[in-house]
């Protein structure tokens, strides 16, 4: 498979040359996906915490729904957001279709259930462990949630990373709602799809390797931060 060798060379060439188009695409990918993960975290983490700690009617059904939404194909989310943001759709007046804003919305919808489900699982396990202790220490429900969020912070960061991985890797949603417009909504994955459809496989795979490298750097950075804040002596 000579393509693999070619694509490694292509990837190296792209990185070394600091190709301005590539930098633009990488920065847009990061801007869209990081913003989406931040928004999804604001929705997903409190939702996950509520599902883990609070008892209310319909909770079981909601947990089921969130877990099911986690498996949504990106293209379905993309189609839904497209229909909402389309000029003739309910939110057409905002003129968001084919903008990074639309891509952020689609990825937020895609990622929020993942963050919520993973947060819920993490926090539910910790809540079972902490519940009696915190009650005896006099914690209110709010304080219980705050304590759990803080003590689970590194596990929650892992949930955010899982969400970021999905956001950076998906192509179906951003292609539909972003349109893969050059210099406007072209991100790593849509660029890869375009190069593939041009039959430029080494370039496509080269971009894929740049994406992999980017994900590796982000993960390493988070692990590094975690080691720094958590200290080496933590069980």
């Amino acid at each position: 498979m000579p393509e693999i060798g070619d694509s490694i060379l292509t990837a190296l060439g792209l990185i070394v040359s600091g190709d301005p188009d590539l930098i633009e695409i990488v920065l847009l990918s990061l801007r869209v996906s990081l913003t989406a993960v931040a928004l999804a975290a604001m929705i997903g983490v409190p939702l996950g915490a509520a599902l883990a700690v609070l008892r209310f009617p319909g909770r079981g059904a909601l947990v089921l729904l969130v877990n099911a939404l986690m498996g949504l194909p990106p293209v379905v989310v993309g189609l839904f957001v497209y229909l909402c943001l389309s000029a003739t759709g309910p939110f057409g007046v905002f003129g968001l279709l084919y903008t990074p804003g639309a891509m952020i919305i689609a990825q937020t919808i895609l990622v929020a259930p993942i963050i919520a489900a993973l947060s819920r699982a993490t926090l539910a396990e910790m809540a079972a462990e902490y519940d009696d202790t915190l009650r005896m220490l006099g914690a209110s429900p709010t304080e219980t949630i705050a304590t759990l969020l803080w003590d689970a912070r590194f596990a929650l960061v892992t949930a955010l990373l899982a969400g970021l991985g999905r956001a950076l890797a998906e192509v179906g949603a951003v292609m539909l709602v972003g349109g893969n417009i050059d210099h406007v909504t072209r991100v790593m994955t849509t660029a890869i799809a375009l190069e593939t459809s041009r039959g430029a496989l080494p370039m496509a795979l080269g971009l894929g390797m740049v994406l992999l490298l980017l994900t590796l750097i982000l993960n390493a950075a988070v692990i590094g931060l975690r080691a720094r804040f958590e200290g080496p002596a933590h069980a």
């Binding site: 913003t35 604001m42 003129g95 968001l96 279709l97 084919y98 903008t99 990074p100 804003g101």
Partner: peptide
């Protein structure tokens, strides 16, 4: 949250320019 959404909309040029 509201401010963030607003920033998001401002940062992304609308189609109808």
């Amino acid at each position: 949250m509201k401010r963030l959404l607003l920033a998001l909309f401002l940062a992304t040029p609308a189609m109808a320019q």
